[in-house]
Structure formats: structure tokens, C-alpha cells
């Protein structure tokens, strides 16, 4: 739990992910709007990641895990292809404000090497773009790209433009 106090991490784990119950659990019906009833095997529900992660690890007495995680929309094939085509054009913020944290969690959960490679490539290409924007921050503040940044990228933009600003001010002295 390295990120115990990291607010972005907490927000990212609050994100709902689709999952399927592998067994029937009595009394959990309220998760799908049936208070008091059991939740049936094969029911698809959206659970917050922090809960889903635990339930997917826990096993019922017969050895099957309580739930199976499904791939969330934010990481499905369509999004992956969009990243592959043009990472810079992708509106990450509208997909998830904490996209990288979420992707990170999924990479480690499924050991999805392909996804991690895609995400790494995406970070590289987008950060280059962020750096260019940070160097001319006075101008294009309202561009579409700036609105598509996720929380991590916003922070990155902020520190990059801050150090750039300091440098410019010092040179002017």
C-alpha cells in the first residue's frame, strides 16, 4: 500500500468496474437493486475497484473466487486501438480523470503486458506534447488538448511550465 495517502489513488480505486458474480450470495441483492434477496450466480454488477479487487482475490469454500473482473470500458479494445492510432488526439480526461492510475491497477491485476506497453508509449508521446505546451503556456491555454489531460498529466504540465517560467524570469533578471 505505497499509495495509502495518495488522493488520486483513492479516487481511482473508487471507479466502478464491471464484474460477474461466480456464485450466489445470500443477502447481497441490494447491489443490483433487490434489497433482501440473494444475488445470483452470473449477475453482472458494477462494483468500485477497491471492493472488486478484494472479492476477485477472495475464494469461496469450493475454491472459486467470488467474482470475476471484466474489462472496463476505459481499457477495452476500442480505446486501445484509439491509443495506438493517435495517443495525442485521445480525450483521456473524458474517459477517466485518473486514467493512468486505473490502467496501472489493471496492468498489475491481469499482468497485461500488452496494455502496459501501450500505456508507456502513450505516456511518452503525450508527455512530449505536454512539454511543448508548457513551453508556450501563455498562448494556447484553451486548446482541446489541454482539456483532455488526466490528473497526472495536469500535474506534469504544471511542474514543467513552472520550471520553464522560473528559467525565463531568471534569464530576464
Amino acid at each position: 500500500m505505497v499509495d495509502y495517502y495518495d488522493i488520486d489513488d483513492i479516487l481511482a480505486t473508487g471507479e466502478k468496474v464491471p464484474s460477474i458474480f461466480n456464485i450466489t450470495v445470500p443477502g447481497l441483492g441490494y447491489l443490483e437493486g433487490n434489497p433482501g434477496k440473494p444475488i445470483n450466480e452470473g449477475t453482472k454488477v458494477e462494483l468500485p475497484l477497491w471492493l472488486a479487487e478484494q472479492l476477485a482475490h477472495l475464494e469461496a469454500p469450493d475454491g472459486t473466487p467470488f467474482i470475476s473482473l471484466l474489462e472496463p470500458e476505459s481499457l477495452n479494445v476500442k480505446v486501445r486501438n484509439a491509443i495506438r492510432t493517435d495517443p495525442v488526439a485521445l480525450d483521456v480526461h473524458s474517459i477517466l480523470p485518473n486514467y493512468y492510475k486505473m490502467a496501472e491497477k489493471y496492468c498489475s491485476f491481469f499482468s497485461d503486458e500488452e496494455l502496459s506497453e501501450i500505456i508507456k508509449q502513450m505516456i511518452k508521446e503525450r508527455s512530449l506534447e505536454i512539454y511543448s505546451y508548457a513551453n508556450n503556456s501563455s498562448k494556447q491555454m484553451n486548446s482541446r488538448f489541454m482539456l483532455s489531460l488526466d490528473e497526472f498529466e495536469k500535474r506534469l504540465f504544471k511542474i514543467a511550465s513552472e520550471s520553464n517560467r522560473q528559467m525565463k524570469n531568471w534569464l530576464k533578471e
Binding site: E104, C107, S111, K120, S127, A160
Partner: peptide
């Protein structure tokens, strides 16, 4: 001075890359 200027940005990107990289065993 040149290193100092790019350091915050480069460290941020590299840290993120490392985090993603380390998720895979």
C-alpha cells in the same frame, strides 16, 4: 542549469513509466 530545467518534467514522466513498468511481473 540545463539539467535543472528539465529535471522536474523528466522525473515525472520516468516515475510514471516506472510505475507502469513495475506492474508486470
Amino acid at each position: 542549469l540545463e539539467i535543472n530545467e528539465i529535471r522536474p518534467f523528466v522525473l515525472g514522466v520516468m516515475n510514471k513509466l516506472r510505475e507502469i513498468h513495475e506492474t508486470i511481473d
